[in-house]
Write a protein that binds this DNA or RNA. Structure first.
Lengths: 222, 222
DNA sequence: CCAATCTCCGCACAGGTGTTCGATAGAATT
DNA sequence: AATTCTATCGAACACCTGTGCGGAGATTGG
């Protein structure tokens, strides 16, 4: 399913039908559609609706007023980009290994079709909405962060952090990334492991580069 | 909200509107309703619809064909405890501390109104539906299970486990509960810490009592 | 370059659809 | 017993609504 074969008008029609139905609880009439999309003739709307039915985006009951609904396929196609209430879709953008450079994505972080997507309850990431992505942890090198092989780390891309937040930091001199609690202490930075039995490390502030803030760690034992 | 004040006919109308809309994607006409409920005159249907609007069960757009929908209150009254698609509500039943006995709830595990409830994506708990509950981890005594203070452990109550599953086990002689990977080895049981740098412990099979299986560990850094 | 197809328009029409009205009969009220 | 209220019916009406038709401009393919 993909909307490439459709004209702009047809895409607009589909969207309008969805919004109208959600807003009112019943679908629009041919004339409602025409008015919204900017079509003066009802026959033209009819014409485009037939197309949409033919392409499988729409289902329609002949001669029944408001007798149309978005097809299940199209609904599903839509849903990918608009999760249900309380859920948020987070793109899974790759893997991390401590001891190697973290691949922090550069451009816009969006849900593309090809992405792996994980579902995260909204309140688990504190309502964060932009620049949120997930990485799967590769290997056991992050045990001191209490993060295990296979865990999923949900991050928000940001360059600064407040004391006490857990961040992904790059240690420039070692060319190495770790997950630690961040504390600024004068010219130094204290990086505190999550594991309370392990000792912090102190590094020069110039030597650390914050890659992102850790919002959550998810471990699924299947 | 309750349907006591309604006549049988009106209840039937409400139900029909819901079913029709679900089935077709658009609401029925006045005549559709009349036909289903057994009313010959459209005016009588109109009459009863007005009543339903007045009582708050229905919302209606005047003079608009099929311009009706069940009110939010009535819909809620219908669905009450069902979480949104893809989410599952899991009751948070207490706290665990390694080194102490795990409070495994005894009776039915249901969503009571007073419970703390956390939201978990369905596929994160592998579609498990019964006997699932959550506990908050108290203290740092479970570091060897890679579980930190404040983490949330999602469990399914069960008495048996397959090899390789992570379980909450009671060590009877010590009167102590831990989270470990479970491996049956003859008359012994090998309990393997999640932390790959820690050694397993071997105990007599009679000495372990499985309390539940760990489905997921959730850590939120707020 | 011409024919075929696509996309659009306005208009007219038939049937769908909500509303209104007058009437009836039983129940509740006075 | 008279009156009012409730619930129903059938019929008529006006407007809503989807469809069909003839035509026009744009685009495409040979």
């Amino acid at each position: 399913m993909n909307t490439d074969k459709l004209s702009d008008r047809q895409r607009k029609i589909l969207q309008f039908i969805g919004e109208f139905t959600d807003a009112n609880g019943y679908p629009p009439t041919v004339r409602d559609i025409g008015h919204d999309v900017g079509i003066s003739s009802t026959s033209v709307v009819s014409y485009n609706l037939k197309k949409l039915v033919k392409e499988g985006f729409l289902e329609r009951e002949d001669k029944v007023s408001r007798g149309l609904r978005l097809s299940d396929e199209y609904r599903e196609f839509q849903v990918r980009f608009s999760p249900p209430e309380g859920l948020r879709f987070v793109p899974m953008l790759g893997r991390i290994t401590a001891g190697e450079l973290l691949e922090v994505p550069a451009g816009d972080i969006t849900l593309a079709d090809e992405d792996d997507i994980i579902e995260v309850p909204e309140d688990m990431i504190g309502g964060m909405t932009d620049d949120v992505f997930a990485l799967r942890v590769d290997g056991t090198s992050m045990v001191d962060a209490m993060v295990n092989d296979g865990d999923v780390v949900v991050l928000r891309r940001q360059q600064t952090a407040r004391n006490g937040e857990m961040v992904a930091v790059l240690l420039k001199d070692r060319g190495e990334t770790t997950l630690k609690y961040f504390y600024r202490e004068g010219k130094q930075v204290r990086l505190q492991p999550a594991n309370p039995f392990m000792d912090p490390i102190y590094v020069d502030a110039d030597n650390v580069e914050i890659q992102g803030r850790v919002l959550a760690v998810l471990r699924t034992l299947l």
